[in-house]
Amino acid sequence: MAELKGWKELPIAGLVIEPGTARKYKTGDWRVKRPVYDRSKCIDCMMCWFYCPDQAIIQENAVMKGINYFYCKGCGVCANVCPKKAIEMRPETEFITKEE
């Protein structure tokens, strides 16, 4: 546990004084199914972005830009709420070697 801070270095009372530090925490490795997004079918309705419980949908000014796999836990809500079936859930194992 060498990387953990000692008591003199920590803020008091268990406070987290920097907002949103959980962004550093990867939840993408929970995923066993991966949402794969097809731009050609997308109408940028933003339903996936709106519902994603992990804020793993990347959008800019209501234009869908893709999926953030660092956070995506693979629940499939996005694919389910997509009115155009532009997101498909695939087994994560299909991608395990491709990323090498």
Partner: peptide
């Protein structure tokens, strides 16, 4: 110190503090 009403500097009070940090906070 770290007032909640300072919305420009949001802080989290009352985190979940498990075996890797709780002891240090007690030492403080």
């Amino acid at each position: 110190l770290y007032p909640l009403l300072d919305t420009d500097h949001p802080v989290t009070y009352g985190s979940l503090d498990l075996y890797d940090y709780y002891f240090e906070h007690k030492r403080q």
